[in-house]
Amino acid sequence: MAEITYRDAVIRGIAQEMSRDNDVVFLGEDVAKAGGVFKATVGLYEQFGPLRVRDTPISEQAILGAAMGAAMTGLKPIAEIMFSDFFAVCFDYIANEFPKSRYMSNGQTKCPLVVRTGNGAGSRFGAQHSQSVENWCMMIPGLKVVAPSSPVDVIGLLAAAVRDPDPVIFLEHKSLYPTKGEVPDGEIVDKLGTAKILRPGRDATILALALMVPRALEAAERLKAEHGIDCEVVDVRSLVPLDTQTILGSVAKTHRLFTVEENPRLCGWGAEIVSIVADEAFYDLDSPPVRITTPHIPLPAADILEDIVLPTPERIVDTVRRSLQG
């Protein structure tokens, strides 16, 4: 057991998989000699050499296209897109190529690859380097989409993603890189498609993802201490596949549902979950489900502006309290 950062967990997760399987290769911009702009790949180039850890030009289409061609023909590439906002310049691969080749070829084509990317706000980078793009990815049949919130989940879910035979979008939250957590020694392999109940509770279910998870946990502690409201916090972790059973089970127990989403409001992941709950667990609910999201605006750069648009523990506390106590 050791306490490590989310950033170091990325390094350890990639290293674990590259040590296990020579077919795992890694490419991206500034990832090799420089160790990544977020320093989340430091030492991999030294450990695995220039044939397996490769710097690329600033060519996002070439990065993802090359990862796909390598995956189709026998390798298991991990590709880094530095900021998830840049998905927009290589979205053809994410939307049209990775997820559709198996289907269109009637099962002939495989695409076992992982796209790692720095997702999310909090770094004051403004509207083109701060977005939460999980909803861009979730809507595409054929992709899997994962977003860990803790170091141990980074390692375990990254290992599961690399071993998965489908294309997986692996969203690392930029603001979580310096955060720390306990990680067991030895190999860690988790399972895609599993949500985790991080804090059991009786009065309401709070679903959260990535950076919103620690905020939901903090809010739950305050709701309990200050208002006597006992919330269950569920880390969704994997949007596709989606662990609906854990979510429905929690709602059946608490009868109230809140989602905490960093993505802008329209078509956020919470909307899909609320619709599932409305379809399948409507009579379990004691009150309307409530979505706590970033508003439908581009993200501003200034501290004071960015802080106010993202869901905060205060906003979560306030929303849950008003819903339960009026």
């Binding site: 993802l64 296209g65 090359a66 390598a70």
Partner: peptide
């Protein structure tokens, strides 16, 4: 789209 994909297949050949 397939020009980068062909590069990837060629990268696999080079690597292996």
């Amino acid at each position: 789209a397939h020009l980068p994909i062909a590069c990837g297949a060629a990268w696999r050949a080079q690597y292996k």
